[in-house]
C-alpha cells in the first residue's frame, strides 16, 4: 500500500496491469479470428470459454475469475493513470513561448486520450455484443448467437467505422505501452532495448490487423 502511494509504485502497477490487459487483448484477438474458421466456430469457442476447467470447477467459474481479474486490472490501471495525471498537472508549468518536442511520439503524448476513448469504446462493445443492450446491440440480438450478433452489429456502417477507429487507438496506446512498461518495471538494458521496440511494434501491429480485419471482412461479405 505504501508502495502504491508513490508515483514509481503506481507506474509499476500500471506496467503489471498493462501486461494483464495486453494478455487479454491478445487472447481476445485470437479468439475473434475463429470467425474465419467457418460457421459455428465462434459460437462453440464462446461456449468453450464458459466451460473452461470444467469439471474441475463449475461452469462459468473460470470465466468469472478471469473477468474479475480483468476488472481489477482495469480499475487499478485507470486509477493510477488518473492520479498520476493529476500529479503531473500540479508539477508542470506551461511554457509561454514555442515548445519543440524532440522525441516524444504521438502515441506517448496521447496515452490519456487513447486510453479514455478505448475505455468508453469497451463499455459500448460490451453493451453491443455481451449484454445485448439496444441501441448499441443490433436488432434481433440473441444470447449465445455470437457470430450472428457480430455480423448483424458490424454490418451497420457507422458501427464498423467505430470498431476500426477504436482498434487503431488501442494499437496506438499499446504501441507506447508495450515499450514503456519495461521501463516502468525496471527492465531496460542495452543488450535488449532494441528488441523492446520491435516487440511493441509487432504486438500492436498484430492486434490491430487481427481485430480490424473483422469489420472489413463483414463489410466485404466475406464473413456473416
Amino acid at each position: 500500500m505504501e508502495f502504491y502511494r508513490s508515483a514509481v509504485g503506481k507506474k509499476w502497477v500500471m506496467g503489471v496491469t498493462g501486461i494483464a490487459l495486453l494478455g487479454f487483448v491478445l487472447a481476445h484477438m485470437i479468439g475473434n479470428l475463429k470467425v474465419y474458421l467457418g460457421e459455428g466456430q465462434l459460437d462453440s469457442y464462446a461456449h468453450f470459454l464458459r466451460e473452461l476447467l470444467y469439471p474441475l470447477l463449475p461452469k462459468t467459474v473460470t470465466l468469472w475469475l478471469m473477468r474479475t481479474g480483468l476488472v481489477i486490472a482495469f480499475l487499478l490501471h485507470i486509477h493510477a493513470a488518473a492520479s498520476l495525471t493529476l500529479l503531473n498537472r500540479r508539477a508542470n508549468t506551461a511554457y509561454r513561448g514555442p515548445r519543440d518536442l524532440a522525441v516524444a511520439s504521438y502515441a506517448s503524448r496521447t496515452m490519456r486520450w487513447s486510453g479514455v476513448i478505448v475505455a468508453v469504446f469497451l463499455l459500448w462493445h460490451l453493451a453491443d455484443l455481451t449484454w445485448g443492450v439496444t441501441p448499441m446491440a443490433p436488432e434481433g440480438w440473441t444470447a449465445g448467437a455470437v457470430e450472428a450478433n457480430l455480423a448483424a452489429s458490424l454490418s451497420r456502417g457507422g458501427v464498423a467505422v467505430l470498431y476500426i477507429v477504436a482498434n487503431l487507438l488501442l494499437g496506438i496506446h499499446i504501441y507506447h505501452g508495450a515499450w514503456s512498461l519495461f521501463q516502468s518495471l525496471g527492465l531496460a538494458h542495452p543488450s535488449y532495448n532494441r528488441w523492446r521496440r520491435w516487440f511493441a511494434q509487432a504486438f500492436s501491429a498484430v492486434i490491430v490487423i487481427g481485430n480490424v480485419s473483422i469489420p472489413i471482412a463483414v463489410w466485404t461479405g466475406w464473413v456473416g
Partner: peptide, 24 residues
C-alpha cells in the same frame, strides 16, 4: 511529476545520460 517515458529528458541532456538509469 511522474515519468511517462516520453524520452525528452535523454534528448535534452547535455551529458547524454541514458534513460536506462531510470529503469535501474
Amino acid at each position: 511529476g511522474s515519468c511517462t517515458n516520453h524520452g525528452e529528458c535523454e534528448a535534452a541532456c547535455p551529458k547524454q545520460i541514458s534513460i536506462d538509469f531510470i529503469a535501474m
